[in-house]
Every structure is written in structure tokens, then in C-alpha cells.
Design a protein around this nucleic acid. Structure first.
Lengths: 221, 221
DNA sequence: CAAGTCCTCAAGCGATTACTTGAAGTACCC
DNA sequence: GGGTACTTCAAGTAATCGCTTGAGGACTTG
């Protein structure tokens, strides 16, 4: 095969993957699917898109083999086809973070995450040894689909009535869907208002998991 | 800032990066620029595209901050803005390789690379200790822009008349622009026909460099 | 089996993208 | 200062993409 012929055949294939990701809506879907499987309607509700539109975007992702569909009774559950997809998504996000001024600008407008309110993923191990509580505030389904090993789950909307389950004499580390999810910030704010010693984990489940750190699947911690 | 507002603002920014990469032509440009800086005309000639078209694609890449332009006299040299861009490109390629049957199919049609003709990047260190010669068959400019530490440079089109420079009693490891570049295969074939003991390195300069392996910039080895 | 839920498909439209062509800049060199 | 080489810009057209709407298919439940 000649050089040009090879290039003409193979670059379009690589471009297929990039094209599938080249839409804010589809990236949002990928980001949600990085938390675990979801059915079309749930994705539509969470993203505010129409069901038909979500379905179409999912077909695009599926045509690029980035997601797979699985029927469960009435509904179709979609999930990412490969852990490498999360890694690609995070790599893409990383380049955007380091290269686009607009992203830095938006990041500045997030709840304050510098003043000792944030803890890196590397620090978690030691804090757990010091009896800190690792709190996953995502939904039960997301937690069950995979969570940080040792974490307990209280979904953000149940947190106000379940404060009693958390020990007041131990530090709490909150985390959620990732760096650009606000749940962990809200949880930290709420807990702080109730006198807890709280920090937010830098990043969330996708970042942790893609780095090969210890995880657990299922409902038990 | 509310959840939806944050998402509506930030996902389009992430999508900008993916959109910039969502074209076979632009990926080819990125791949070439991963070898080192190039001016517009050189890119046009190497890709077979019109100069105006190349220029336009470069503007797209520049708008996403993936490349930067630098005027040198008459010409405009473009280069990748960040090593993370190469890593993103390789991650994208990796997903395509593992997820798309078409890519696997094309890879099968490449010159045979299994029968002991290929050496992994990890094995190089040891082979060099055993006095193997590491041969970079890319252009002089590409070599000078960065190469594997310890490599010697003989561009593929000068190789036939420069065979005398290579020792016949030592193994030769050829490498070039990357996994989907054929130069190293051609060089290996040529050398093999002249009685050399040759293997091809798996991958090329971008793969090596992005893994943080030892490199050298400049014309000396 | 009839009604209800969930999802996909097809058509239609407006917006965006890719490439070509030809003109306009921009820097060099004599 | 005029000629030349290199690059960008602008306009035009064909193709593609993204969303909506409405119909239709698949499965479940009463």
C-alpha cells in the first residue's frame, strides 16, 4: 500500500472518533455515562434535551463504537464501551483546561477550591488512615456502578435529612461526578454549615477510576 | 452558578477541542506537526492539499489553541502548542485502534510486523547496550527538532547511497514518524536486502516522546 | 389484547463546514 | 521600488450536521 493510500484510508477512521466527540451535547452524555449505565429517558431528563435528540446523539456515539446499548425490559441502557473512552474524554478536557482561556475563566467562577477546601487524590489514602469519612454524594445507582473504595453513599438530595449518619468528630471528604460537578461543593457547604470539618476531593469518580486507584463495585462500601 | 448554566457554558468549550480534531485533514496536519515545526507550503506538499486549504485548517487548529504560528522571514511556521496535544492525538488514535474494526483491518494490511521484525519501545534500552544502532530515517529537520537519544539520522531517500555508514556487524533498529508511517518498514526492507540484521521499532518519535523516554534535540546524536 | 411506556426512525429546515478559486497582504531581495 | 515567494482572506457552492416533529416499533402491564 502506498503512503497516500494508507493515509487516505486511516485518517478518516481516526477522525470518526473525534467527530463523535465533537459536540457539547454528546460530551455531556459521555460524561454522564462515565458515572455508569443510564437509559435514554434518564439522559434526556438530566441534560434537558428531547428524548429523540438524545437517542440520535447516542446513535452517533454508537456508530463510533464509543458506547454500547443493552436492552433491559422496556428500556435501553447505554454504557461506555471501554475505559479508554473515559481516559480520552479526560485527556480532551485536560487540553481544553490548559489551552483555552475560557475554561480557566469558568473554572475561576466555581465555588472556591483553593483555600484548603480541596484535597488531592493522592492525599486521600493518608486521610482515610486518620479516620476521615469518604462521602459519595451521587445517586445510589451511580454509587453501585462503581465508587472509591471505602466510600459511603448519601445522595446529595438526601443529605439534609441524613446528617445524623455522619460522625461529627471525623473529617469528611466529599466527592461526586468530577471536577466540574457541583454536588460535592454543595454537600461540603451544607456540612460545613452544620459544623463538620469538610474538604472536597479534587475531581470525582471518573478521574479517580481512570488513574487506576482502588475502587469497589456494588452497594456495599 | 446553577448546574445547567455551568454545563451550558463549559461543554461547548470542551467540544471546541474535539471539533478542531474532527477532520481527517486536520489530524494529518497534527500528526505531521508532532514531528516538528513546518511551514504552510511544506504541509501542503506533504498532504497533497491546496495551500489555501491547509492555511484554513491551520486557522481552525489555531482557533482551538492546538497550534501556534511563528513567522520566520517569509514563511509562517506552525507548531503544536503543547506536548499534551500529542498525547491527546495518541489517545484518540488508541481508542480508534481498539474500538474500530476498520482500523484493525487496515493495520493488518501493513507490512508484516509480527514475525520478530518489530521491537517494543521497552526493549530498546537493552538492545542499545548490546551495541545495536538506532536509525532515524526521517528528514534532517525532523531529526533536529527532536529524536530518540542515541539515534543516528539517515533520511529514507538518502539511505541507498549511505549504506556504508552503517556497521554490518551490529543490529539496526529503524524508526520514523510513528506506528502508521511506512518509512521505517521500507528502510528495514532495504537494509535486510543488503544483509543487515534489522528490526523496526514499534511506534515512532511521537509515541516515544510522549511516554517521557530519553530524547535529544539538535543535530548531534 | 388494549393501553401505556420507552425508544428509534424519517423527513424537513436552518446553520455550519469543507473545498475551490481568485484577490489581497506581507516580507524578502535585488 | 518593483518583482517574487509565501500566506491569508473572501466569496461561492455542495455537503453535512443538529434539532424538531410526528409516525412507528418493541416491550410491559392491566
Amino acid at each position: 500500500m502506498a503512503h497516500r493510500e494508507l493515509k487516505d484510508r486511516i485518517y478518516p477512521q481516526f477522525a470518526r472518533i473525534a467527530q463523535a466527540l465533537a459536540s457539547d451535547k454528546r460530551l455531556e452524555l459521555v460524561d454522564l455515562l462515565a458515572q455508569g449505565p443510564r437509559h435514554v429517558d434518564a439522559l434526556a431528563q438530566e441534560t434537558g434535551m428531547s428524548v429523540a435528540n438524545v437517542s440520535q446523539h447516542l446513535q452517533v456515539l454508537r456508530a463510533a463504537n464509543l458506547v454500547e446499548a443493552e436492552r433491559r425490559g422496556n428500556m435501553t441502557f447505554y454504557h461506555l464501551s471501554d475505559p479508554a473512552v473515559v481516559q480520552l474524554w479526560l485527556a480532551l478536557r485536560g487540553v481544553a483546561e490548559s489551552r483555552l482561556a475560557e475554561v480557566k475563566e469558568i473554572a475561576r467562577s466555581l465555588p472556591d477550591r483553593d483555600n484548603g477546601n480541596v484535597v488531592s487524590r493522592d492525599e486521600v489514602k493518608e486521610l482515610l488512615k486518620a479516620k476521615a469519612v469518604l462521602l459519595d454524594v451521587r445517586t445510589r445507582q451511580e454509587f453501585d456502578a462503581g465508587h472509591l473504595r471505602g466510600a459511603v453513599n448519601i445522595p446529595i438530595d438526601e443529605l439534609p435529612e441524613r446528617l445524623g449518619e455522619l460522625p461529627r468528630d471525623r473529617q469528611v471528604i466529599t466527592y461526586c461526578r468530577g471536577e466540574y460537578c457541583l454536588f460535592a461543593d454543595e454537600a461540603a457547604e451544607l456540612l460545613r454549615a452544620h459544623g463538620f470539618d469538610v474538604v472536597r476531593l479534587k475531581g470525582g469518580w471518573p478521574e479517580w477510576q481512570s488513574e487506576g486507584r482502588p475502587v469497589k463495585i456494588g452497594s456495599r462500601r
